[in-house]
Amino acid sequence: MLHLALFSIFGAICVAGAVNLLVQRHPINSALSLIAVMTSLAVEYLLLGAEFVAAVQVIIYAGAIMVLFVFVIMLLNAGEEERTRGSRVAILFGIPGVLLGGVLVAWTLIQRSGTDEVALGALPGSPTIIGWLLFHDFLLPFEVTSLLILIAIMGAVVLAGKPEAETQQTGKGH
C-alpha cells in the first residue's frame, strides 16, 4: 500500500518535472527540473527493487552529467529565452506524433495487462547479477560500447584541441 503510494507520488513528480522542464524559460530552471526527473526516476527504480540501477542513475545522471549541464549554463551565463509561437512543422507533425505515441503505449499496456504480477525483488537487480551479465553473457557488446565511448572521447579531444600550426602562430605573436 505504502509502496504503491510512494510509486505514484514519485511518478507524478517525474512527469511534473518533465512538463516543467519544457515550460520554464530560464535554462537553469529547466536543468534543475531535469535533475528532479532523474532523481525521481532513481526512486522509481529503487521501488521496483533495482537498487544498483537506482544508485547508478543518481551518481551518473543526476550527479555527473547534470553537473556539467549546470556548469555550462553558468559558464555561458545563459539568460532567459524569448517565447516563440512555435514552428508550423512542429504543430503539423508534433501533435499527430504525440497522439500516435500515446495510442501505441496505451495499446501495449492493454495487451499486456493480463500477465502475472511479479513479486518485488524477484527479477534480477542486484550488483552481483548485473556484473555477471555484463562481464559474462554480454561481454562483447560491453566491450564494443566501451570502444565507442573511446572513439567519442578521441573525437572530443580532436575537436577541442587547437591545431598545431595555430598554436605556433599564437606563440610567435607574443
Partner: peptide, 24 residues
C-alpha cells in the same frame, strides 16, 4: 542497506549543486 557505499557516492555527488547554485 546493501548498496550503502553507492548511496554515499550518489549523495556526495549531488552535494555540488548547493555550491554551484549558490555561486550562480
Amino acid at each position: 542497506v546493501n548498496i550503502a557505499l553507492l548511496i554515499i557516492l550518489g549523495v556526495t555527488s549531488m552535494g555540488v549543486y548547493g555550491v554551484a547554485l549558490a555561486g550562480w
